[in-house]
């Protein structure tokens, strides 16, 4: 096996071990998305004003769950590199010869393992809570949610590679999350947006994921119909990992 690939796996394994040794982090990152979905159900089924809207909430539950995963994965992963830089472990990794590519891809793989469990929990819990029978849609829905989670991890690593302190990272959270929530198609249909906002929406990777999820769950499309959006999501993922890798400074 090439040394670079081995290094990536070493970083990924270390990240997974670290996560497993931190039960609070683990529980929070796995339970919070499910709790948020539960909150959504409580609001849409329990508040008369929302009930009167007759939103087909079952159609939106999984796309909303996907958004929660995106939101959490982004926040958790943005702190990763900043913390490593602050503690000196990033410098130490570079000093012993880990390449920035191995470090970035290793992070994405390691936290991706967590994202896999997160996806399974969110998709499983949401379908069960809302009584949704996914049938053949189970695999594409899970795959898309997982891909979205990986993309947000890559986004987080990219942002934290450029930041020096937690203080610089936090303002990016609302800056990214609020426009994404409004523009990704979950709250407002894309075709009702003014042209310039549609352009911005298409620069945000979650838009593509939500397009797939809403296509499958709400519009009754097949996965094949949504394949271009899915591939665009993957493309964003690859580009973000590459950008994150390049933005890690090897010498300050």
């Amino acid at each position: 096996m090439p040394e670079g690939l081995r290094d990536m796996l070493r970083v990924a394994r270390r990240v997974v071990r670290q996560t497993l040794r931190d039960p609070r982090f683990l529980v929070l990152s796995l339970v919070v998305p499910v709790l948020l979905v539960l909150l959504l159900k409580g609001i849409f089924e329990g508040v008369p004003a929302f009930r009167a809207l007759r939103v087909p909430i079952d159609d939106y539950a999984l796309p909303a769950g996907g958004f929660m995963v995106f939101f959490l994965a982004y926040i958790l992963s943005t702190l990763v590199l900043v913390r490593e830089r602050r503690d000196g472990t990033l410098g130490r990794m570079l000093a012993v010869g880990y390449s920035r590519g191995a470090i970035t891809v290793g992070f994405v793989l390691g936290y991706g393992a967590l994202a896999l469990v997160q996806t399974a929990l969110v998709v499983g819990a949401t379908s069960w809570l809302f009584g949704i029978d996914l049938g053949p849609r189970l695999l594409p829905v899970s795959l898309t949610t997982f891909a979205l989670s990986m993309v947000s991890i890559a986004m987080g690593v990219f942002v934290s590679a450029a930041a020096r302190t937690e203080g610089q990272v936090f303002p990016t959270v609302p800056l990214l999350i609020v426009p994404t929530l409004l523009l990704c198609g979950l709250v407002l249909p894309l075709d009702q947006l003014p042209a310039y906002l549609r352009v911005i929406a298409h620069l945000l990777p979650p838009t593509y994921a939500e397009n797939v999820l809403l296509g499958l769950m709400h519009r009754g499309h097949a996965f094949a119909d949504e394949l271009p959006s899915f591939l665009a999501l993957l493309g964003f993922g690859v580009a973000l990992v590459a950008a994150a890798s390049v933005s890690v400074r090897t010498r300050e």
Partner: peptide, 13 residues
């Protein structure tokens, strides 16, 4: 071999 001034270790591990 570089030993930084701070411990620079993964504390959970």
């Amino acid at each position: 071999g570089y030993m930084p001034q701070s411990y620079a270790l993964y504390e959970e591990l």
